[in-house]
Nucleic acid binder design. Structure first.
Lengths: 108, 108
DNA sequence: ATCTTATATTCCTTGACAGTTATATAACTG
DNA sequence: CAGTTATATAACTGTCAAGGAATATAAGAT
């Protein structure tokens, strides 16, 4: 079975999620924005439904897809463990840049 | 080409990253911890190398693999956009639970 | 009823991936 | 040098995913 990690690994699905983050969309709206066929969009929406990242509201023939962000907690909670490591390097880079600037000033 | 998202979508590779987060490991150390064959481990390490998530230090025949967390920034920066949405729901749940507790107390 | 709109499903092709076994490479050991 | 240890690569297999075209379903619209 597909996981939340698998779901967000696909760029098309990330694009869909980014769009649904703004507001719910119908399938056809997504088709127009996404540069893949309608069956392709329906298929990716099905995958997102299976992992609980979206839900549908049927309004006559129109199906409104909305975001369910909860499963993303798994991804967030995993990657957040690396946050300090990522930022530590940034800080070191900052420090390095500061030192370089100071040296430059000393060269005046 | 494989992306950082693809790299971390695989559970074996996440496991490797989680181990390297603690300290560098040799290939054989990972083999013993990971329940897949040595070539399997080497293959996943190659993938992680290709996306820049690990680096090797050769000490004679032993190859020490260490974590390079920087590329994870891409994943973090994507998912962090959903953080407030995730937590908003948590907060609502918190509130709900608080209300339930209060009601319970009122029933005394 | 018929036509149109909106979406889902089926079937198909293509391509890639995870893992295995077998083999190659490379360095150390005695 | 022969043997051993550590790792990488090659070749193969089974599986599965992404996307497209065609088709099915379902709900209006006329």
């Amino acid at each position: 079975m597909i996981t939340t990690f698998d779901a967000v690994a696909n760029p098309t699905r990330r694009q869909i999620l980014d769009l649904l983050r703004v507001r719910p969309h119908t399938v056809n709206e997504l088709v127009e924005l996404l540069d893949i066929s309608q069956p392709g969009v329906s298929k990716q929406l099905k995958v997102l439904r299976e992992v609980g990242l979206v839900q549908v509201r049927h309004e006559a023939q129109k199906h409104w897809y909305g975001l369910c962000p909860e499963p993303l907690a798994e991804v967030f909670n995993w990657v957040v463990n690396y946050r300090s490591l990522i930022e530590e390097r940034y800080e070191r880079l900052d420090e390095l840049l500061k030192n370089m600037q100071e040296e430059e000033q000393n060269n005046d």
